[in-house]
Nucleic acid binder design. Sequence first.
DNA 1: ACCTGAACACCGTTCAAGT
DNA 2: ACCTGAACACCGTTCAAGT
Lengths: 243, 243
Amino acid sequence: MGTAQRRPPLSRERVLAAAVALADRDGLDALTMRRLAQDLEVEAMSLYHHVANKEALLDGVVEVVVEEIVAATDVAGGPATGDDWRAGLRARILSAREVLLRHPWAPRVLETRTTLSPAVIGYYDGVLGILRAGGFSYDLAHHALHVLGSRTLGFVQELFEPDDPAGADADVTAMLEQLGGRFPHIVGMMAEVAHATEGTLGWCDDQFEFEFALDLILDGLEARRVGDRPRSDAPGNLDDRTT
Amino acid sequence: MGTAQRRPPLSRERVLAAAVALADRDGLDALTMRRLAQDLEVEAMSLYHHVANKEALLDGVVEVVVEEIVAATDVAGGPATGDDWRAGLRARILSAREVLLRHPWAPRVLETRTTLSPAVIGYYDGVLGILRAGGFSYDLAHHALHVLGSRTLGFVQELFEPDDPAGADADVTAMLEQLGGRFPHIVGMMAEVAHATEGTLGWCDDQFEFEFALDLILDGLEARRVGDRPRSDAPGNLDDRTT
DNA sequence: ACCTGAACACCGTTCAAGT
DNA sequence: ACCTGAACACCGTTCAAGT
């Protein structure tokens, strides 16, 4: 029973969910306080009772997406992946990537955050756990996070990602032909690579390139892990070092 | 001689140079058409005679920065680096990085461009040239560009780069203590790594991490280059492949 | 407690008008 | 040809007022 209210009361959760849906549907530029309010059939100023301001809204939106990633990666990798750090980390990162492909605007928001949300800290703690279980020192694990960079969360910053791949193709092709011999190597590469990947959309198979890079990095980390000093859980002996 | 005019006539070059200077001085958010005009002692609408709109302004600003990178890398790497692709590429990328450290806002603008500027294409053509001279196939060189990602231009997208390192340190420390045992690996890592890097500002030595990652990637590329098929300049034999 | 309307300070940009 | 002032459509946000 209960009377069917057409507009349930606003809440932080409802605001954030609507914000994610709006960005998914119309893109990040469409995510303004005013349009978000419109979607929720409310005045813009009502939103300020649930989020402090737009930055806080974006912080919340990141939380929602990262929680989705955590949920997906817990299924994929399991909480503890035992000794096979490489397979465990690989699976976790690739499943994070699947989530982010559903929210293509999310990386751009992620990059602009200035404070770490607990969800993100928790995610990185899990990644560190996998590395530690695999025998990495904290020092090497720390470097590993830097090398992986945004790949840890399943994305890389694609320089000049075209809005529409087909159009960009035409653009680039026209530009290259026009510019003749000025860029011989680019022209050569495109002639060869475009031919080889005939059938896929655009010049690059993004999923293939992502995994190629990920595997190259994991190989490099494995090589350095082998030379790494054994796992030390006792912080005491650190004091022996001279500053 | 010549009368000293206080306000030289506007030009695209003067507009772009002022835009770079404004962003360097006051940050990217301060780079608005109105404030840029103010710096140039002109009305905002005058700018539209020299750049089509704000997107075109940002395109131009990227051009200026990339040209600065090209000038720096030509000195550092030389136009042709011969056989030692690894040292040549490494020097080029590190000198690109030096330029970008002077324009910390530039990566964020670079990322939002949707069209490739000739300056960027030219830069990548040079990088490809180094790889080709080092014996890379176009196919592997293409993968190499993807693996290097934004590192090619001297930067990586730092997730959650704090505005002021010291403040962020305090924030994180307080947060971790407050959250107690919830993130054991993060806490462990920070205890160990912070101790080891005592004396540097913040948790990470960014330059060290950049070079660590770069070298790991270059190692991986070298290993794959050795197994790569020899350089083929004849596109004819590609036709032998089945799609 | 939660929501609203009017208002403010700021954007990018158009347009007709000035020199 | 180059620059300008007023205006428009949009932001995020404050504030006093409503229920």
